[in-house]
Simulated scan of single mutants.
Amino acid sequence: MRTAAPFLYCLLLFSGFIFCPATSSAQTSLLSLEELANEEVYTKLQAAIRDSTKALVLSLKGDSLTQYPQELRHLRRLQVLDLSLNPLEELPAAIARHPDLQVLDLWGCGLKRLPKEIGRLQHLRYLYLDYNQLETLPREINQLQKLEVLDLEGNQLTRFDTAWCRWERLEVLDLEGNQLTQLPPQIAQLKRLKTLDLSGNQLDSLPQRLAELERLEYLYLDRNRLQSLPADLGNMRDLKFVYLANNRFRELPKGLETLQNVEILDLSGNQLSSLQLNWQQLKRLHTLKLQQNKLTELPTELLQLPDLETLDLSGNQLSYLPDDLSAWKTLKELNIRGNPLSDKRKEPTQESASASGDESELGRIRQQLPQTQVKF
């Protein structure tokens, strides 16, 4: 979920998933992220050392560092440290010399392990460890009780430790592209979680208690081995974005229609042959991705989705679309490429045929959806 935004801007926005927190307690000298965004960003270590009393933000991103700079010991007041894209391979215990760190970015450093001393960074709130070579995390990491964002994308983790479920303030957890095969039921303890990315793992089932994450808004489960979802999905009332692409669903997961606030639903790349669901419940759905399945027909209920704007049906086995496509008044984009659409209409009427001058199914679609961008 990385972006190409500049360093601090990326920290503040993080694809829209990080929200500006309240100002820190008056008992400490910690700044809020809004305040840190106005601080000078030092990009040279020696310059930061010269201004050690006021250097709070240091970015040494991509400086070809092969070792953790020992000179960093002079910067005790650091609150933001970016060492990303340096081939460090190891993070020393000396990281604990920066007790005021709130943001630590170690993206793409080739790290194979973390020191247990990382648990002493009691003010750490944003920890980026994506694209390293971590197979495990030290148990001391559960001492980071102020942690709000943890990015572990692109590592080699095989186990979701139950100790991680103690991060009571965690809002974003990114585990994309690891080797997880299961989740513990205790994940339900992450009550503040808003974004959970588990895409690109080896999950074939999910704990039923996952549905207890009632504040969750973004759920990424694509590229796993899932055939079903937890039954009580309706508990997740804030869920808006659901990504289930490239799993093993043969039918729509039960309870999906209870997600009445979902806006984007991606079911592409599965094995769906039908779409039996109470679609009318999904009144806020504006993007539906169903490409690369085995669909032979569409339910007419899809025509009744009041906010649907984007529908991708490419790469299925559709010969016809439902009658009266003009009911899709909000539809802006329709992709039907790679379907064996019939040369003749299923039941062409004399009126519609003469109006379009074309009795093919494609002609009917063009006629009934004049304002929609259709990809044939």
Rank of each mutant, 00 (worst) to 15 (best):
T23Y: 10
N293W: 02
Q373V: 12
S354A: 12
L221D: 02
T287E: 15
L295A: 06
L193C: 04
L111R: 07
R284C: 07
R237Q: 14
G110D: 08
K146V: 01
L12K: 06
R209F: 06
P115T: 08
Q260N: 11
L311E: 05
R248T: 05
K116E: 15
P370Y: 13
I49K: 15
L302C: 00
K294C: 14
S314V: 11
H123N: 10
Q373C: 08
L127D: 00
Q367F: 12
L106P: 00
F376I: 05
E263D: 06
K112A: 11
L173A: 03
Q260F: 07
E214W: 04
N247W: 05
A4G: 11
Q46C: 09
L134F: 05
N132V: 08
T330G: 03
H123S: 00
S228I: 05
L308H: 06
I141S: 03
F376L: 09
L13Y: 10
L313D: 01
G200S: 09
Y126E: 07
P6I: 06
A48L: 05
T181R: 12
L78C: 08
L58W: 07
Q79C: 06
L150H: 04
E361C: 08
D105C: 10
D51C: 12
L226S: 07
A22G: 10
L244V: 02
E89H: 12
L75D: 03
S32W: 04
L308V: 10
D63C: 10
N270F: 06
A4E: 13
G338V: 15
R125E: 15
P138A: 13
I141K: 00
L175K: 08
E309K: 13
L101T: 02
E217D: 11
P138R: 08
L303T: 03
Q27I: 10
Q70T: 13
K44W: 02
P230A: 04
E71C: 01
L216A: 09
I18T: 12
Q179C: 11
Q292W: 13
E90F: 11
D82P: 05
E90P: 03
R284V: 01
F376T: 10
L183F: 00
E117Q: 14
L321M: 08
S268K: 09
S199K: 09
P92C: 11
Q122V: 08
A4L: 14
R364M: 09
S84H: 09
L56P: 00
L147H: 04
A231S: 01
R215Q: 15
T3S: 14
I187P: 03
T195S: 12
D204P: 01
L152V: 04
K332Q: 14
Q292Y: 14
F7N: 07
E176P: 00
K289V: 14
Q280F: 00
L91D: 00
K54Y: 10
E34C: 14
A48W: 01
N224Q: 10
V242R: 01
T300V: 13
R284Y: 13
K283E: 15
D323T: 11
P322Y: 11
G110E: 13
S64I: 06
S24G: 12
N224G: 10
D204S: 13
L290G: 07
